[in-house]
């Protein structure tokens, strides 16, 4: 057992536990914290995959901005314990087994596809700086149009949020 493998299993376990807690928690804040746990462990996995820049962005934007916004809204609305209502019977008896079947199916195909058996090679740490530079070059050359499109998307999102939040006269 080398250090990366142990690290992978610890983070994978934390991510799955976080996702399960997200489902089980009754308080919305606890769900939010569980999701932050998932995001943190995913960030460590990104580091293992040799993508430190994406890991940092994941923490800054996802954990540091989006989830803080969620926590803020939960605090603002003073959202209490989630009330349980009757589940649809179909969802209960057919949904869960079908969901797991789908999951197993996906896992099976992933594990046996040609790309799934490839082994991550190369050393991540040595090429970090070059990778970040290369990434930005690609983002601003090859993917310039999608990049500009997302900036318009953000502008629209800001306008949308403003319109929704505006008080009615």
């Amino acid at each position: 057992m080398s250090v990366p493998i142990i690290l992978f299993f610890v983070c994978a376990l934390l991510a799955v536990v976080g996702a399960v807690l997200l489902i089980l928690a009754r308080e919305p804040i606890h769900s939010a914290l569980a999701l932050v746990l998932v995001m943190m462990s995913l960030a460590v996995l990104y580091l293992l995959l040799g993508a430190p820049f994406v890991a940092a962005v994941q923490i800054i934007v996802y954990a540091g901005a989006i989830m803080v916004l969620f926590v803020f809204v939960i605090m603002l609305l003073n959202a209490g314990v989630e009330e349980r209502t009757d589940f649809s019977k179909i969802a209960k008896w057919a949904g869960v087994p079908l969901g797991f079947f789908l999951l197993l199916l996906i896992a099976h195909f992933l594990a046996h596809s040609s790309i799934g058996t490839a082994i991550a090679t190369g050393t991540g740490a040595a090429t970090q700086a070059a990778d970040t530079r290369e990434l930005s070059t690609q983002l601003f050359r090859q993917y310039l149009f999608p990049f500009e499109a997302t900036s318009i998307l953000i502008l629209i999102a800001i306008l949308g949020a403003l319109v929704l939040a505006r008080k009615d006269e």
């Binding site: 769900s31 869960v96 789908l102 996906i106 896992a107 594990a111 799934g116 991550a120 090679t121």
Partner: peptide, 27 residues
């Protein structure tokens, strides 16, 4: 350094996605 097969990551990704779907349906 990293002898972890890519498929492990993909399986983890599938599990997380499945849990996300379950949460979406049940919450």
């Amino acid at each position: 350094m990293s002898a972890i097969p890519i498929s492990w990551y993909l399986v983890l990704s599938a599990i997380l996605f499945g849990l996300g779907v379950v949460a979406f349906v049940f919450k």
